[in-house]
């Protein structure tokens, strides 16, 4: 399958994001912002796909994916289950 990269998009798992700001601070393009305490890709079109936000995120809340023509992006995002409960205790 000939895939042509058309930039990148970001999967944000808001349920997992704790708003620590690591991804925002170390993004080389400064394209992420904090919105209502959660990360938000404000200018995804300038993303260079270095994955540093994804790799440094301690909570698996952000993922960078290349946009490929055959891919239906929205399905990817909607396929995730956000309804999962958080671990209800702290020992």
């Amino acid at each position: 399958m000939a895939e042509q990269k058309k930039g990148y998009f970001h999967i944000i798992r808001e349920k997992y994001c704790k708003g620590c700001g690591i991804c925002i601070a170390f993004c080389p393009k400064q394209l992420l912002v904090l919105k209502n305490g959660k990360v938000f890709p404000e200018r995804p079109e300038i993303c260079i796909g270095c994955h540093m936000c994804e790799y440094r995120c301690p909570d698996f809340a952000i993922e960078v994916k290349p946009i490929v023509e055959e891919t239906n992006n929205s399905a990817d995002v909607e396929g995730l289950d956000y309804s999962l409960p958080p671990e209800a205790h702290h020992a």
């Binding site: 997992y16 704790k18 620590c20 301690p58 909570d59 205790h89």
Partner: peptide, 8 residues
Amino acid sequence: LPSIWCPG
């Protein structure tokens, strides 16, 4: 998930 770890 999410984990019990503190933010950051």
